[in-house]
Amino acid sequence: MPTPLLLILSAAGFGASTLLLGLNVAYFPPWTLAALRAAIGLPLLIIVAGLTGPQKLPTWHDVVTVVAGGIFVVAIPFVSMAAGMQYIPTGMGGMLYATMPLFTLGLAALFLKDEPATLEQGIRIAIGIIGVVLIAGPGLIADGLGQAGLGTALTLISPLSYAAGNVWFRRRRKMQPFMLSAGMFLVGTVAVWPLALVIDGAVQVEPTGYLIFILLALVIFATVAPNLLNYALVQQAGANKAALAMFLMPGFSVLFGFLFRDERLPLIAFGGLALVIAASAARRPKALRRRAM
């Protein structure tokens, strides 16, 4: 598949997640929706892992990697995004999720010895924080910890947790990616499902065709498929090219929100998103990098 098409499909899949979360959370409480998302995605990832060839038995080191990854990358983000999307527009959710590379940059500087903090990183993080304030600020100022403010705060937990997972993986020995993903979904299911039963209780929902469709669309087209596409993009074009999907994602979130929910976002949010992307993706000119070496 051509690289540009892989990039667009990957970004579109990630971008559709906020729309589909918003549609699903109208029927399923957040903890239940997160549990269903992980539980339905798990067998799909097991099948994919099996199709990629024989899998090695995990070591205790791998088990620890998977357990922590399942909490940071599946359990916490799935719950917090579902909870946040009850209160904020689709496009806003996509913009807030796009802060993940910025959080990764900051956490890597704090916790990775081989990626020490530099003046350049400090400037980029400061610019990115201003961008986050511009995106989240209007809702927080207008509503405090009311619905919009709460939704913004809950949604920001997701990219922060995902960034923590990225830093965790950077410190661990590499694993076969689909085996890692399947293991994390297993951990997410086991961690979230009991809490969903306690917090949400038994959810009485009539399984209509529409409801089954939007739930499967969330799992297949907005969770499993974009991750597989992004993995293929990394293999084909490299990690830097694949990272562009995260920066394109908010555009698709805004587009889907406009087309399917008639949403409008303030211009200041787009300015904030531009600052976040610039802070996350900026690189010094080659001449300056040579002088620093």
Rank of each mutant, 00 (worst) to 15 (best):
Q176T: 04
G139E: 00
L218A: 10
E263V: 09
G131N: 02
P177G: 11
A222I: 03
D200G: 02
L140M: 09
G188F: 03
L44R: 07
P159T: 12
L244T: 09
L19R: 00
I76R: 03
T208F: 06
K56N: 08
P285V: 00
I47F: 04
P138N: 11
I212A: 08
T104Q: 15
P250Q: 03
W193R: 08
T3F: 09
A26C: 07
A38K: 00
G13D: 07
Q204I: 14
R173Y: 05
P250I: 11
I123Q: 14
G238C: 09
T59N: 05
G122F: 08
R290M: 05
A292C: 07
A278S: 15
D62V: 14
G122K: 12
L110W: 12
R170Q: 07
G93F: 11
Y27T: 14
T90I: 08
G91C: 13
L156I: 09
L23I: 07
F78Q: 06
A35S: 02
H61Q: 12
A278P: 10
L110K: 04
F213W: 00
L288S: 05
G151N: 05
V234I: 02
Y231M: 06
A148H: 15
A148Y: 14
L102A: 14
A75T: 01
Q86W: 08
A142G: 13
P30C: 01
S161M: 07
H61E: 10
E120A: 15
T155I: 14
G149C: 10
P77G: 02
F111Q: 03
D200C: 06
T52M: 02
S10K: 00
L110Q: 13
T152D: 15
Q204F: 12
V132I: 15
V132G: 10
A82T: 01
A83P: 02
A279V: 08
Q147V: 11
L216M: 11
Y87F: 15
E115N: 05
G144D: 10
A163Y: 02
A202F: 00
G272F: 07
S280A: 08
L218F: 02
G84I: 11
F247H: 15
G272S: 06
V133E: 07
L229E: 10
L33F: 06
L229T: 01
W31H: 11
I127T: 10
L154G: 07
Q176S: 03
V167K: 07
F28P: 08
V224M: 10
L5R: 03
R124C: 09
V64E: 04
M81G: 12
Q147M: 14
A75K: 01
M179C: 05
V192T: 04
I141W: 11
K56R: 10
M293E: 15
G272W: 00
